[in-house]
């Protein structure tokens, strides 16, 4: 299809042919596009069909409506969103000042920090959670007589397992590092800070008023990646025995197969919606100045 469109283009404006480069026919593009579309869309379509086409009942959206009534849906989703919010807040509060300081004060340490922040990609979550589990078991035994014992209990509160937030902060580091690094690369942090300082801004003001607003895209990116990570994380939560959204999906899939696939499709759509919203938000920030 793409090929036929391309070939028709030069014939409609032959006069411009001498000026424009002759349009080349690239049939491979169409083939690759079609291949990729098949690869992504076929499983998705199959999932959708599986959820709406119930044998003997015809097409019904029953599986989707049932989602909201199912036990544990709201609480697990809320838990996941709360965990995501806490993770985003902590990882950004940790990384933004650290990376700005790195850029201004010790640019030579950048490779070291990059490697450290990439480690979570190398360590498999299963190994990571095994380590955390060991510490959680070992800690209370050795610290039973100290106030730290209470801490160990508190971070494992099933209503809000803070230990998961700690784990997710570590797991989000590679993504957040990369997003922020790209944002900081796009601007001259040192000059902006110095310009703000010569305008009478102290250090905190220079950061908040001059650097952060120009990092908005990067902050949104980092937040989104972290959100996606936390919503989809299964291994750590499951092995530590908590029940956020991903664990809940797996648990219901055993008893209600259609429902769990419907939830997956729904969460995919929600993720897409968030991604589009982010793109729209970032895009508007770039075009808004023209108005």
């Amino acid at each position: 299809m793409a090929g036929s469109m391309n070939t028709s283009a030069p014939s409609t404006n032959t006069s411009a042919r001498g000026l424009n480069k002759p349009v080349r026919v690239r049939p491979w593009r169409g083939v690759v596009l079609a291949g990729a579309a098949l690869y992504f869309l076929v499983p998705l379509a199959a999932s959708v069909i599986f959820t709406v086409d119930v044998p003997g009942e015809g097409v019904t959206f029953d599986a989707y409506t049932r989602i909201f009534g199912t036990d544990g849906f709201v609480s697990s989703l809320l838990l996941s969103l709360e965990l995501a919010a806490a993770t985003i807040a902590i990882v950004l509060l940790l990384m933004v000042p650290a990376m700005v300081a790195l850029r201004l004060g010790a640019p030579k340490l950048r490779p070291v920090v990059e490697v450290v922040c990439s480690l979570p990609l190398v360590v498999p979550p299963i190994a990571f959670v095994a380590g955390i589990g060991t510490v959680l078991k070992w800690g209370p035994e050795h610290l039973s007589r100290t106030p730290l014992f209470q801490t160990f209990t508190a971070i494992q509160n099933p209503d809000f397992p803070f230990v998961l937030v700690l784990a997710y902060v570590v797991m989000a580091l590679p993504f957040v590092y990369r997003a922020l690094d790209a944002g900081l690369r796009a601007m001259d942090v040192r000059t902006l800070v110095e310009a703000a300082r010569s305008c009478g801004a102290g250090w905190p003001q220079a950061l908040v008023q001059a650097v952060l607003p120009n990092l908005r895209g990067a902050l949104l990116n980092a937040s989104f990646l972290t959100l996606a990570l936390v919503l989809g994380e299964f291994t750590v939560a499951q092995l530590l025995g908590f029940q956020p959204f991903a664990v809940w999906i797996v648990n219901v899939s055993g008893s209600q197969a259609q429902l769990s696939v419907a939830v997956s499709v729904l969460s995919l759509l929600v993720t897409w919606a968030l991604l589009l919203a982010l793109a729209g938000f970032g895009g508007r920030s770039r075009t808004a100045p023209r108005g």
């Binding site: 601007m187 001259d188 000059t191 902006l192 110095e194 310009a195 001059a210 120009n214």
Partner: peptide, 11 residues
């Protein structure tokens, strides 16, 4: 101060 590189706040 006026800097060598463009130093206006882009936002």
């Amino acid at each position: 101060m006026v800097f060598q590189s463009y130093s206006l706040f882009p936002h």
